[in-house]
Amino acid sequence: MIQFEEAILGLSDDLGAITIANQQVDDDDNASTRSSITAVDATTHDYKVKLDQQYVSSTVESSCPKVGSDDFNRLCVLGRGAFGKVFLVKHHTSKTLYAMKTLKKASLVLHVNNIKTERQILEQVRHPFIVQLYYAFQTPTELHMILEYAVGGELFRYLDQEGMFSEPMACFYAAELVLALSHLHGLGIVYRDLKPENCLLDQNGHILLTDFGLSKVSLDGKTNTICGTAEYMAPEVLAGLQYDYSVDWWSLGILTYDMLTGSPPFKGNTRQKTIDRIMSNKPTMPYYFTNEAKSLLTGLLRKNPHVRLGAQPKGADAIRKHRFFRKIDWKHLGERRVDPPIIPLVTDPESAEVNKYNFLLAHGFSHPTNCATYQV
């Protein structure tokens, strides 16, 4: 049983401390940097992640270096999955709120590598638009990951209620995702599961990319596993071909189209029809799309990954320079100095309830047609 637990958690006695340097990594870095996920961007601080057979901790909770399930009070369930649940929890000492991902060991025998990869990535990635892991520990029957609590909930909820976003709004969220994905690619990580449900909002309305269970760490950036959500999967993935980071840019194109129209471009009433449309159809561009939006989506949704916008060698730099993002100040965006279009207003964070939200009218954001109450 110990070997099974170590295999899942990626733990052993000879693992020491891993220091995560305050270092920027992007698509222009050399291949040796991209092949490692130990050098990551910490926006303002250096982080140290300590590993042993009981926990993973960061300097965020230096006053409580070792934790277990008894150190947290479960407040409510934030989400459910096939292998466990995500709880909103409060740390007894610091009173800080976290999201605790709890997985049943008995259900994970065939998914050991996914869980191990997810934790390895979250241990080492520090980015303003990627959810942060603070602790990981285990009980005899469960695995636990203590994650940053995204109080704003899923981007999907807002998109579902609103129907569609204005172009400036979609541009903002797509731009934050460009920075998050290009950071992952710089570390040799193919994300592979970009969709609105995996894009959370923090208390200020910024994106937090979450759920790395399907991510792949690849030394050469290439793999051929068929995985993901059908509506957002690239043609080369569905065809079982070898693929690279460009599958994430396809998914970004699908997500941006989804934000602008309220639905993915190739969605069918069955999974097979969706796949058939992805493989054979071209996306329909609604009349209200600007030329910049049409150009971006045409580039991102090219079925040939070698000519897709974002493909190597130019990578994410070609996307950042596209006219769709002409109003984005990438430096300010990366420093979280650009106001998000949606600001969650939370009166009681412990209830996991967003009572309402504000749309900013500045920066060209359009006002919504429906100001309903939102709960997450």
Score class of each variant (00 low, 15 high):
residue 2 I to V: 15
residue 2 I to Y: 11
residue 4 F to Q: 13
residue 11 L to T: 14
residue 15 L to N: 09
residue 19 T to L: 03
residue 35 S to Y: 04
residue 39 A to T: 05
residue 49 V to I: 13
residue 54 Q to H: 14
residue 56 V to W: 00
residue 69 S to D: 13
residue 70 D to Q: 12
residue 71 D to L: 05
residue 76 C to H: 13
residue 80 R to C: 10
residue 89 V to M: 03
residue 89 V to L: 06
residue 89 V to C: 10
residue 105 K to C: 01
residue 108 L to F: 04
residue 113 N to C: 09
residue 123 E to M: 10
residue 124 Q to K: 14
residue 125 V to L: 07
residue 129 F to K: 06
residue 134 Y to A: 02
residue 135 Y to D: 00
residue 135 Y to E: 00
residue 136 A to F: 02
residue 138 Q to F: 00
residue 141 T to Y: 10
residue 146 I to K: 00
residue 148 E to K: 06
residue 157 R to N: 09
residue 162 E to D: 10
residue 162 E to Y: 07
residue 162 E to P: 00
residue 164 M to I: 04
residue 165 F to M: 08
residue 167 E to V: 09
residue 169 M to E: 08
residue 171 C to H: 02
residue 182 S to A: 14
residue 184 L to T: 01
residue 185 H to M: 07
residue 185 H to V: 04
residue 190 V to Y: 00
residue 197 E to G: 07
residue 206 H to E: 10
residue 212 F to L: 09
residue 213 G to H: 05
residue 213 G to C: 02
residue 219 L to K: 15
residue 223 T to R: 03
residue 225 T to S: 13
residue 225 T to N: 08
residue 229 T to I: 12
residue 233 M to G: 01
residue 237 V to K: 01
residue 244 D to R: 09
residue 251 S to Q: 06
residue 253 G to M: 05
residue 262 G to W: 06
residue 264 P to A: 13
residue 270 T to A: 07
residue 286 P to Q: 11
residue 297 L to Y: 06
residue 304 N to E: 09
residue 306 H to R: 14
residue 309 L to N: 00
residue 311 A to M: 07
residue 321 K to E: 14
residue 322 H to F: 13
residue 324 F to Q: 04
residue 325 F to C: 05
residue 332 H to Q: 15
residue 334 G to P: 06
residue 334 G to S: 14
residue 337 R to M: 14
residue 341 P to C: 11
residue 349 P to L: 05
residue 353 E to S: 13
residue 354 V to T: 06
residue 355 N to C: 11
residue 359 F to R: 11
residue 360 L to Q: 11
residue 369 T to P: 08
